[in-house]
Design a protein around this nucleic acid. Structure first.
Lengths: 354, 354
DNA sequence: CTGAAAGCGCTTACAG
DNA sequence: CTGAAAGCGCTTACAG
């Protein structure tokens, strides 16, 4: 009844193989599926294999998936454009890691672009629901639409977030970076060099990567017995840091730690202000950045701080997702959540306290 | 009989809506599919819509696809890793364009990583066959496996190559760059500045982007009445250009045009040799490059030449592919092949002939 | 105007 | 050891 939809030669199906080999279509499925649970005579098996080979058979992944088997496709859902034009430096290494590991594990990747439209709630819901076409899905973005994601998790659809998440009672599987430890270590390093008056500059946007870094900084300061009350300073989008820098000079601040985000706004604002004030690092002020700045601009490169292991995060997320996908659905796995260490970057912008 | 395969709450199906609205599942399909060919009473339609809304229905993309409708998924098959670590500069803008346009047209993207394995013929065949999971597929790479691609085309599977192709009797749909015209224009520019002794340096690997550039260079030279016999010079991978540069000096060569490829090998070899020889551009020698070099290295930036419109190629390829996918299969479209113009880049490495 | 049926190409219990 | 049947969740002619 249904129409082929296209002219041209049809791709061979299991039914074609069955006809050629003189067996039933179900037998073909068993042979090609490589299921040992069912035992077939070697000759039957070989006849099927030969017929499949002769016809150049390739299974239809859509049908395979609908029949509840696996697809070998992993989804990647980004809450913004997957290939950002201006923040390529941030996502790209993650994508490289994802593709690398997906290829290694024989998984194709579905990029769900639905989110890019910046759509309504209903569109988001539909877009997220659509990830089901894959065996499982990776999610990447600063914020989580808890409704749709919760429903996906309820239905036991395998998913892994890239970046730590604490929504949904902390049950969201993820691979993140240990910003807390890395940030605390940066402060520890400064303290070790004799710095006592340290400021932490961050953007206003509250997302976990930001609050984790702040927690780390405060922990590092507290561990060293430093006063913490006036340590954290915010800078809004588009704001200048000129006044802040001037204030710090009068306060005797010797080191500044700055947040690094996708946009790099805080870092850029700070380095511009330092340049305008004619201050150089580390001579006039020690500077550390909690991540990898897009380019150090006026400040000597590399800037002291740490590396976010983006590529490894991508790779590891794929590994975890494949584990979830291939796991026996009967057994309940513990929620998979991992934080990867951030390697320190020595850099040249930190020196002993004056 | 079949098992759900997963624990957890099932997502609502059309059958659930039908039960709730008191209609048949097929009617639900008609309503939600928005088909005007079938006319339904407004009340029935509304009841179905309400029920769908109440259940939070989202169609199963896999089932939709299997039932021979469209999928809104476009494939992207690269004959190497999709996200190259070292040649990111070359593919990335294409990917950006692809994603941009795919998102604009509501298409998801399937990245087929099968090729990355560097597999056998059979693996290639399987990997390429697998692209059928999408409504159509984009192909990206220097070489074409004509067998599998030919079979795909025979079956009327919509596909578009990025980059000009002349295989399969020139019937492969593609979006390329007009290297011939752009390369001829570069030579024309040099001639206009009085250069008569010009050399063209290229790599040995023969692919269409290389031969098109060479054709353009030779055409530009021929149009200007320049002798063409000793114009083209090859450099192998890893070879130095030191001797070439020395020879050119004795031959009175005043301008060199160099090929630009993914690896940038020829350009890099040449600029290193120029540096070692202590030659500067454009004072000692005019230099033009047929593309956008990864970074100009020792040579002043930007280098005179042209821009490959990679992002536009990606965008346009998606547009063409969607046209093919949505075309009425009954009517035969002409083979879609387009060459995009390369914008000239003035640069600062070309001057009047000494 | 609406519903029952067949089919997309597979997998998987189940019956011989 | 092998085959017939049901089912995955849809779409689409076709019959009422």
């Amino acid at each position: 009844v249904a129409v082929t939809g296209r002219t041209g030669k049809r791709a061979p199906r299991q039914a074609d193989i069955a006809r050629l080999a003189g067996v039933s279509q179900a037998t073909v499925s068993v042979v090609l599926g490589g299921r040992q649970s069912v035992r077939l005579s070697a000759t039957t098996r070989q006849r099927v294999l030969d017929a499949a080979d002769e016809l150049g058979y390739q299974p239809d992944p859509v049908a395979t998936r609908l029949a509840s088997a696996r697809n070998n496709m992993l989804g990647l859902y980004t809450f913004t454009a997957t290939f950002p034009t201006d923040v390529a430096h941030s996502y790209y290494p993650i994508l490289v890691g994802i593709e690398e590991q997906a290829a290694a594990l024989g998984q194709d990747l579905v990029l769900f672009t639905g989110a890019s439209g910046g759509g309504s709630r209903a569109r988001d819901e539909a877009a997220i629901r659509r990830t089901r076409i894959a065996d499982g899905c990776l999610f990447l973005g600063r914020h989580v639409p808890v409704g749709p994601i919760g429903r996906l998790m309820e239905s036991a659809f395998p998913l892994v977030f890239i970046g730590r998440r604490d929504e949904l009672d902390g049950r969201i599987p993820h691979v993140g970076a240990d910003y807390v430890a890395a940030s605390a270590a940066v402060v520890g390093q400064l303290v070790g060099l004799g710095h006592r008056r340290i400021r932490y500059l961050r953007e206003r946007d509250d997302a976990l990567p930001s609050t984790d870094r702040e927690r780390g900084v405060l922990r590092g300061a507290a561990d060293a017995g430093l006063p913490v009350d006036d340590m954290v300073v915010h800078v809004g989008p588009g704001e200048s840091c000129d006044e802040l820098v001037a204030t710090w000079r009068t306060e005797g601040v010797t080191a500044v730690v700055v947040e690094e985000t996708d946009t790099g706004a805080a870092f850029t604002a700070l380095t511009r202000a330092l340049e305008r004030a004619g201050l150089s690092c580390p001579d006039d002020l020690s500077l550390a950045v909690l991540g990898t700045p897009p380019s150090s601009g006026p400040v000597p490169s590399p800037v002291t701080g740490f590396e976010v292991p983006r590529r490894e995060m991508g790779r590891r997320a794929v590994e975890l997702l494949v584990e979830l996908v291939t796991a026996d659905p009967a057994v309940d796995l513990p929620v998979r959540q991992e934080l990867l260490a951030c390697a320190p970057r020595a850099g040249g912008t930190v020196g002993p306290a004056g």
